[in-house]
Design a protein around this nucleic acid. Sequence first.
DNA 1: TTGGAAAAGTGAACAAGGTTCACTTTATTT
DNA 2: AAATAAAGTGAACCTTGTTCACTTTTCCAA
Lengths: 205, 205
Amino acid sequence: MTTADRKAREREDLSALILSGARKLFVEKGIEHTTIRAIASAIDYSIGTVYKYFKNKNEILHALHTQGFQELGSQFIVLRTVKEPMERLKAMGKVYIQFAMEHRDMYDLMFNLKAPIDFLDAINEEEWNEGKGTFDVLKTTVKDCLDKGYFQGHEPEPLSFLIWSCVHGMCSLEIRERTKGVNLNNPVNIVEQGYGEFLKILDKL
Amino acid sequence: MTTADRKAREREDLSALILSGARKLFVEKGIEHTTIRAIASAIDYSIGTVYKYFKNKNEILHALHTQGFQELGSQFIVLRTVKEPMERLKAMGKVYIQFAMEHRDMYDLMFNLKAPIDFLDAINEEEWNEGKGTFDVLKTTVKDCLDKGYFQGHEPEPLSFLIWSCVHGMCSLEIRERTKGVNLNNPVNIVEQGYGEFLKILDKL
DNA sequence: TTGGAAAAGTGAACAAGGTTCACTTTATTT
DNA sequence: AAATAAAGTGAACCTTGTTCACTTTTCCAA
């Protein structure tokens, strides 16, 4: 079945090409400029072809959001070298914030936009595996901390959710331009400062 | 100038009517169904009239977002009865979460959507007074806590931002359906549980 | 009282974007 | 080489925000 194999490969290739075109626009011009027409024209194919490969725009954005989780996951790999769980937790927060601040639109897509979740709903997928996987990485480290005697009296799951929320909240407020509401006496980046306070709290727990 | 006065009043009235129509759609059908056409038809006026009263849709959404802050502010009034600052801080979080969960679309508009901020940008308004005002209420309570000896070694401003982020993060993840990523062993609402962990931490600080 | 200006209100029309689908072109198979 | 299938196309449709030339109403001075 050489022909069928090649066909499948070609299909994969064009699928990937569409995504890379979408990705490029997404990164360079922001999500509002990432239209189907723009994606098609960026890769010199017609609108119709894009729709032969993806059911709709939500599917494209979902695929992009999955790529984002893969990248975030690969950033997390360095954390394996940090053996002490509390240190690892602190480093994880730093990596997470850095990812969010360096890939604002991607972060927004992964954790704020409706599109990827709407896509899951449309295909009757109950689970959000991308998010779940990342959350599990956090939860494992939090459990390690509990085993080491940190976070006395806390429950791993809701505590992990709280920690995620802290960091996500800061990134989200920053990306959605709500940090305008915070008067800074200090010229340092508010997210950095907020994370500094977070670290101080961890040292007490 | 009785006539001019009445004119001004009528103008105010229609302005308010447009907003109430928008509000109704917003609450009942969600933001995606709150189109200019739908607003106009809900109050039996034409599209053109809506545009005589508001420059564009962002201005309408900004006005709605301001109403939201007024309501959140009025929910905060009960907190004045709580004299002990740490207790007040805990109660404030509870009120905030309750507001967010009961007015999801409004919360989203206030803290997530681009529209209100885009409106401010368009009129060259640097300040986000609505957010700033609410943040100041929090900051005052956090400062009171510091004065009472809580939060030793912390800075009021970034600490307030961190606390806000914690609570906002939980609400935001819930509203944007990212709590799907959290496997619950316990049937209780994850935001409630996360806030429970937050309270435990406050008791240690 | 009334004529004309100003204010209020209208809705057709445009642009942009997601989506569909009948059609053309290319590739494969027999 | 013809028949069939797969790949690709883009005009056209729908919805939504927005504009603006036009109509209707209101107001005040002559």
